[in-house]
Design a protein around this nucleic acid. Structure first.
Length: 502
RNA sequence: GGCCCCAUGGUCUAGUGGUUAGGACUCCGCUCUUUCAAGGCGGCGGCACGGGUUCGAUUCCCGUUGGGGCUACCA
């Protein structure tokens, strides 16, 4: 860096052509963490130079995705900043100024080739085993020929004239020096026929104009970088520092795509992930704090993040691990916070209706506190905890096989129901006392009552402490459930269901 | 095909010119006995291969293999 006071400035520059991709979120997170760690600025710039695919909805999806995992931006289309505008389609005249400079210096030229002609040229070169680079006629037209074509009104794009020999060396903070043979680079298009800049031009111009100090982006851009570097030199721009991040791959080791499940970050919210867990997970793909610690909160991430702990090799999006991590966050999360997230999900399932009374809300938080220890996704609360909210819950096959279909169970359930019905205090100690008391009286182990009771009351063989969960259910409901299970058992209705997962 | 990047268990990774190569996920076993998809304990499993350099390479160099990326008027 130079001697002058230079603040770190990084950016995330997505194209609004879809949802925020998991890979994009990863890149954004790293660029953001770096800026925050360095006390610098993080810029959001929208690269909508693909006139065909860019959409407004997509822009919103990007905002939503970034915000979800807690990434904020100091400058951007919605918040403004000293380098406005932050949307490339609104910066066309800025690129035109640079095109003019390049044309004047002879580093750029008009290309009148049609897409068909280009395609043909490519095929010929490929067939001859030559690297497909532009070698068409346009790079050598003289002024007169150009004027003629212009007069004819032939459409054209603008190409950048790359060096024909020599080497371009890219100094990458993660990979070290990487060199590229210039003769392999083709004259690439920098201005489309439409007048829009291509990505290569726009990114170089904007990174310079916006004083970006560190270009942090995915590795797929590494091979484009020598082109960018030549452009910068031709334009007399100072080079930023480069850091090319490892890619995220699917379990089959190809670039993460729809085939591997969802690539839309926000789908994971819908699948029951907590934003802090997803952020943590994304952070430890391709980066590690160096210590034997994987669970890191926001402040820790910012504090510990450095580029030299970023790995060079690609990482795999391991949903198992993400799910585990989510479970860890769930365990320690506040019931209040989780309840806020859960209410809409429960409403959607029809398990709660309308607004919660303060008492009901308090009750829900107790349920959440009881359940969160053994959940891994928010949805687990809804699926495994269904019995807290409705009498209409299924008896799973394990519960049926292990307890509910047994001959001696209905009688015990009825006996328990009878005793519970007579209880005056509905609290933890009393519940435990009644259950253990029954076991003692009929001279069986406590488990022989506890397990069938759990199966009858929850339909499951697993779950939180039975006494605790019973306490959260109305006494009448527990009695009814015990009797219903006993009845169904006697009627032979508790046989395992075919084709049902256990 | 060409160019570029990468390579520690199945996965994410720590680490070193001499280590019993450490941790996490997953899987398995044991335990807790009020269940487990919870907790506790333990286990299986790794430096891709071949050459060098070196007294000694997982570590440094070269090659091979494998994987990935780029090779658009997409970004």
């Amino acid at each position: 860096m130079t001697d002058e006071m230079s603040e770190v400035r990084t950016r995330f520059a997505p194209s609004p052509t879809g949802n925020l991709h998991v890979g994009g979120a990863h890149t954004a997170l790293f660029a953001w963490l770096f800026a925050r760690h360095e006390g610098g600025k993080f810029v959001l710039r929208i690269e909508d130079t693909d006139e065909v695919r860019s959409t407004e909805e997509s822009l919103q999806a990007i905002y939503d995705g970034l915000k979800w995992i807690g990434i904020d931006w100091d400058e951007g289309p919605d918040v403004g900043g000293p380098f406005e505008p932050y949307v490339q389609s609104e910066r066309l005249e800025l690129y035109d100024q640079q095109f003019d400079r390049l044309m004047d210096s002879g580093r750029a030229y008009r290309c009148f080739c049609t897409p068909e002609e280009l395609q043909q040229q490519r095929e010929i070169m490929q067939a001859r085993g030559i690297p497909p680079r532009y070698e068409g006629p346009c790079r050598n037209y003289d002024e007169k020929q150009i004027q003629t074509l212009l007069a004819e009104g032939k459409p054209y794009c603008v190409r950048f004239r790359v060096h024909e020999s020599g080497t371009t060396v890219v100094d990458d903070l993660i990979r070290g020096e990487v060199s590229f043979d210039n003769s392999l680079l083709g004259d690439f298009v920098i201005r489309k026929t439409s007048g829009y800049p291509t990505y290569h031009m726009a990114v170089v111009v904007d990174d310079h104009l916006m004083d970006i100090t560190h270009v942090i982006r995915a590795e797929e851009h590494l091979a484009n970088t020598p082109s960018h570097v030549q452009l910068m030199e031709a334009l007399d721009f100072e080079r930023p520092q480069f850091a090319h991040l490892p890619l995220i791959l699917g379990p089959d080791r190809t670039k993460l795509s729809k085939r591997h499940g969802s690539v839309n970050l926000l789908d994971y919210r819908d699948q029951g992930f907590l934003p802090e867990a997803m952020r943590n997970f994304l952070a430890i793909i391709g980066w590690s704090p160096g210590a034997e610690q994987e669970i890191l909160g926001l402040e820790e991430l910012i504090q510990k993040f450095t580029l030299d702990n970023v790995s060079k090799s690609p990482g795999i999006f391991d949903l198992e691990k993400a799910t585990w991590l989510n479970g860890e966050y769930l365990k320690t999360a506040d019931a209040d916070y989780l309840t806020d997230l859960l209410v809409p999900m429960l409403q959607e399932e029809g398990l709660i209706e309308g607004d919660l009374s303060p008492e009901r809300r308090e009750w829900l938080e107790r349920v959440v506190d009881l359940m969160k220890e053994r959940t891994r996704l928010l949805n687990d609360f809804v699926v495994w905890g269904r019995y807290y909210f409705t009498e209409d819950f299924p008896y799973d096959n394990r519960a049926r096989k292990k307890w509910l279909r047994r001959e001696d169970v209905p009688e015990r359930l009825d006996m328990l129901a009878e005793r519970i019905e007579k209880m005056e205090n509905w609290d933890l100690a009393s519940i435990e006392q009644v259950i253990r008391g029954l076991a003692d009286d009929i001279d069986v182990g406590a488990g022989k009552i506890i397990h069938p009771c759990r199966a009858a009351v929850t339909g499951q063989t697993i779950g939180p402490s039975l006494f605790h969960l019973m306490e959260l259910l109305p006494k009448e409901s527990v009695v009814a459930r015990l009797r219903r299970a006993a009845e169904l058992g006697r009627a032979g209705e508790m046989e395992p269901l075919p084709d049902v997962e256990e």
